[in-house]
Design a protein around this nucleic acid. Sequence first.
DNA 1: AAAACGTGGCT
DNA 2: TAGCCAAGTTT
Length: 346
Amino acid sequence: MEDSVTARLLDWYDKCARVLPWRSPPGTPAPDPYRVWLSEVMLQQTTVAAVIAYFTKFTERWPSIAALAAAPEEEIMAAWAGLGYYSRARNLVACARAVMERGGFPESESELRALPGLGAYTAAAVAAIAFGRRAVVVDANVERVVARLFAIDEPLPGARKAIRYHADSITPQSRSGDFAQAMMDLGATICTAREPRCLLCPLTSDCAARAGGEPARFPVKAPKKARPERHGTAYWIMREGQVWLVRRPGKGLLGGMRALPDDNWTARSDGHGTTPLDGTWRRGGVVQHGFTHFSLHLSLALYDGAQWAALDSRHGEWWPLDRLDDAGLPTVFAKAARLALVGETE
DNA sequence: AAAACGTGGCT
DNA sequence: TAGCCAAGTTT
């Protein structure tokens, strides 16, 4: 039975594989490991639709891992702005440099796993897709497909071990990279989280959840915790067509990214409301932004004073408004900046 | 081992 | 619309 699942899935992939910029068609030589790795890192917790534009931009600007490794970290962080999970960009740089140092990508799953930013999933995916190694690739798509195929009742995350065991049982010796991508295509287009399209599924006759009549019940998940709501303020300080931007600390939320000054709101607490400069401030409206683990109401304060000398050039810089798009602001601050600019022209 | 860590799209 | 969800990793 396992063999037939594997064969049916690969047959389906041969006909129906999605065409994606980082992929080579089934049965053709593997793509450049650099492109496989870069796409896999970008795709961590991120949709294909969001990744395509970034992948294209990155590979045009840095066509090889050598080019990426030689680029200033600051430029790569700015190019990553908007994609989210910014520690990925930091790890991307560190990984590129480590790979150059050792003379190229390692090909084994365990050596790949030791590189910065490559966890269990990404190491397996790169080993299988770029290097043709047999590896058991388990991401959220595979979890869903396997949980349904075998009607696994145990809730996630506890079910991970059982899911991995079953995923291993259907992973072929050869073509495990195609197999992994087939599972992900199936999960993304047919075996979707809500309303799976079982009538189109090549594995419908193998699927225990389908036989049970309630495929969407799987995977069972533990209930989630409520997201707290936080309030904070961002400060818009303008002078002669420039705005004052700071660099956030390297670790933590939006770590290492350029940003508007703020009153130190965090996931755990509201901001303290203390302004960064003396003088007159005006209300500039409120931006609402959802993070993974909290929701933020960010008030915008607009500076009317002229005490600019108090700003510390070790922590920030004047940035020209006409190049604001190049500043690489994370989305929450890009929203605030947009609001400020609309306010200024009214 | 649980929590931190972004964002945009879909229902 | 408010919540769920996505090719996870790190600490």
